[in-house]
Every structure is written in C-alpha cells, then in structure tokens.
Amino acid sequence: MSVEKQPKEALFAPKNMKLIFNPLNKENPITVQVLGICSALAVTVKLEPAVVMSISVLAVLAFANVIISLLRNTIAPRIRIIVQLVVIASLVILVDQILKAFAYEVSKQLSVFVGLIITNCILMGRLEAFAMGNKPWPSLLDGIGNALGYAWILIVVAFFRELFGSGTIWGFPVLEYTGLYHIGYKNNGLMILPPMALIIVGIIIWIQRYRNRELIENK
C-alpha cells in the first residue's frame, strides 16, 4: 500500500476517457486483441440478436469489472480465476433471468448465447488485466469501453451478414424493395455460415490496419 497521497483526478480526465475510446479502435478486443471471436461468429447472423448480445455483454462486463475492482485487495491470487468466474457466472445468470422475465421475446431469440457470455474471453481478459489492478471508476470505464469495442464490430458484421445473407436489415426485407431479385440476384447462403463472419472480421482488421499503421507488427 502506498502512503503517498495521490492528487484526485477529475472523473472524465483525458486518461480516463482513453479507457473508453482506446478499445474502440487501437485496443479493440476483437480486431486487435482477438478475444471474444467465438461469439462474434455465433450471434452475428441477424442484427437484432447481435445488438441485444452487445447490451448484455456491456452490462455484465461493466458490473463484473466494478465488483472485481472493489474486491481486488481481498482476493487471494491463488483463487483469483475462480472468484472472477463466479462473479461473471452469477451476473450472466442474473441477466438471463431478467431477460426471461421482462424481455421474454428477446431472451427467446438469444437463448443459449446469453449463457455463453460466461465463456467470452473478453470478460476474463479485462478482469484479469485491468480490474484486478485498478480502482472501481476506471474499471467501470474500461468495462464499458471494451464492451463498446466488442459491440461495434458485432453490429457491423451482423449488418453485412444479414443484408447479404438474408436480404433484410433488422428483419425488414430491404432488398425486396429494391427489386434486385427480379434481375436474378440471390441471397448468398455462405454469408449466414460462421466462416463468413471470420472473413468479415478479417476485412475489418485489414481496413483498420491500413488506416492505422501503428498496429502493423514489426518483423
């Protein structure tokens, strides 16, 4: 424990805002850290489940980060992974129960994927790398930032997969209105299969590195 008194920081000091904005781009959990890929493949066939999944991950990650950060000085290093898992699992069960009670339709759509938030590597990754060593407020921001970084990739991938795979956006048959089907256009069945999500994520990574040269690894 340090006895030095640290100067009190403003809640939205630039250092704190970085915690939110860095994961959106430079430290993106999916495209840069390559965490949470599994769920990015599974829930991105349609836009709506992707959005609800993002909100659920946001809730779980923000709360888990704060709880672990509050407990960080009491957790024995030997059992820290178990403690983190228990916190994540309980929060996920809570989210699942709440969805079942108050957003029944949505919970039916997400079904197993809510439970699978437990296995999302981003959660464990952030708890282990950030919340274990930082105060609650930065941890909260870090949680929100990483969840948003995860969310935007998910939503972009889901947008393209739904548009080209099913010809709809949020369930609305947009391509039907454009009359493309009459001139022989067909929905691409490959888009709804998991490999295509990986390819789209790959394209996003490509564009991101093209625009942001610091991300390219030096050999």
């Binding site: 829930v43 197993v112 709804i192």
Partner: peptide
C-alpha cells in the same frame, strides 16, 4: 413452430 436455440438464419 418455436425452438429453443436453432441456428439463426438457418
């Protein structure tokens, strides 16, 4: 018909 967790889109 309803289902618990069939693959979305398929």
């Amino acid at each position: 018909f309803g289902h618990k967790g069939e693959t979305p889109g398929l």
